[in-house]
Amino acid sequence: MATAQLPAPPVRWARAPFYFNSAAHLLRIEREKATTLGELLAALRAVPSESIFQHTFRTLQEHHFIREGFSNDYAHWAFAACNEVGLAERLASVDVREFTSVESLRERIVQIVQDYLNRNPRAADRVAMEPFYFCASDAVVVPTPFVGRNLAEFRDCMNQVSIHSIHYHFIEARLRLKLNSNDFSVWLESELDMGRIADQFNRIDIYTSTLQDVRRTMVRVIERALHSQA
């Protein structure tokens, strides 16, 4: 029996392709360390911005596989080494995606610690079980061979790139873009006029998902869009 086949919908080509990159990081040990919350506060004000980046953005990448609430190194230390649960909760609530510069993120963290110590002055000098060692990250951009020129190719690349590439484009990107968005959403909106997918990407919760979950969610969103196009 002969079947009539519908013609395939025309491929919508992006005005400019998406070049997937990744970033490789090398950890530097900084001079500062803190044995009390008071020392932590002083060091937070003094360390280079690469250090704030390491203990917030980058640590999220290093622990990308944890779903159960890993947020940043300061919150973890306040909880595990200082037993200051209230402070840990407030620090853990800091969502790096709300910040488009490390300096504004630093201000927010300093403000939280300062407020806590104003209300709990004796906590400032209480010695922690383990010191907090400040580190910093030297990042190097690494190109990948993956290039997406339309939505289907973009999905295929998304399935193949490393998790570091996802972090680079989806989370770190806002520091480059200075926008509350990410490289994927910006490209989808500006090069493919797919603002709805871009918005859906921006609503993915990175604190209750692993980066693999993030990848899977994005691929699902793209596949739904491809299916509806067809």
């Binding site: 970033a23 090398l26 911005s49 690469e50 980046f53 953005f57 510069s101 490390v102 300096e103 990250s137 030297d138 990042a139 190097v140 951009v141 770190e172 520091l175």
Partner: peptide
């Protein structure tokens, strides 16, 4: 580290 010490890389600015 080799690349950084040999001055071969452009470090990504993350600030």
């Amino acid at each position: 580290l080799f690349q950084i010490l040999l001055g071969m890389v452009r470090k990504e600015k993350t600030t």
